[in-house]
Amino acid sequence: MTPLPEPSTTAAPPRPASRPGFVRREWLPIILFVLLALLPFAAMLGPEKYTLSLVTRVMIFALAAISLDLILGYGALVSFGHAAFLGIGGYAVGILAAHGFQDAALQVPVALLASGLFALLTGAISLRTKGVYFIMITLAFGQMAFFFAISLSAYGGDDGLTLASRSKLFGLSWLENDRFFYALVLALLIGCYALTRAIVASRFGRVIRGAKENPVRMEAVGFSPFRYQLAVYVISGMICGLAGVLLANQAEFVAPAYMAWQRSGELIVMVILGGLGSLHGAIIGAAAFLLLEEILSGYTEHWKLIFGPFLVLVVLFARGGLLGILAKVRGKSGGGR
């Protein structure tokens, strides 16, 4: 590898991480999705129900993490209340189901609308603030949603509410089938990945990325970042709301714990663990987080004693997350292009 930034005709950018890949073909996400698509076949050989349920959960959290990465990785908006959207999506399913509306055809639009509205209201206030204020105010709005859910005594209050069954799909009970549900979640994950990928590469995405790096410069060329940031916050919230719908269906249960601030923290952890600002890093991070939790908790009930310090070490020594490590390894082995 020649580190010299000489102008070259091919102009390979020296820091791929800072250039969200538009034209570049990315193999990693494709490999990821192919693996996820093949997994159910492998799962048939082992404990299928367990495997499918675990990986479905991974994919649902990956979806939530992608939505967070969209604003965190590309907009530097450190939302510490993102779990609220998981809860809003979940409660949209739970509450509608409790009133006999079990069809996803109604639940999903309601969930999207509710999360979008919540994002619009809280975003309009939060985005007026910067830095630490933004972190804390999103955290506080997340808590607000959490306490609101607890106060919903008609819907289980603290204990949450159990769904009688998974949602119907245009009257059909297909979601009850774990394989079908897996496929649906995977399809939605791929769809939202493609959507967010397109967004960050679009005109709109360029404004978001620019405002992340230098907001004053953005205003000096004539952009008011606020409107764009609010829009991307709403988009992100809606995608996370969709993840909430899926999570409620996967667990067949919704509870205020969906919105606990620790959950929001975990979402951030997932995004960072995988590698900030790459979208598929969020998928890897979600998988790493949940699998680590699964494995560690299999060994000891005090797995958090290991996980906490692990996080600290990641921050101190492994900036760039797993993708960063991967890039470093590839760089050392002579550039794997």
């Binding site: 965190l72 972190i135 952890v269 004693l305 996980f307 906490g308 600290v312 921050v315 900036r319």
Partner: peptide
């Protein structure tokens, strides 16, 4: 470090200590 790193590392400390007092 930036705020994000600080949030993350101190979050790790919370996770650890909440468990440690249990132990």
């Amino acid at each position: 470090r930036d705020h994000l790193d600080q949030v993350l590392a101190t979050f790790g400390i919370i996770i650890f200590l909440n468990q440690a007092v249990k132990v």
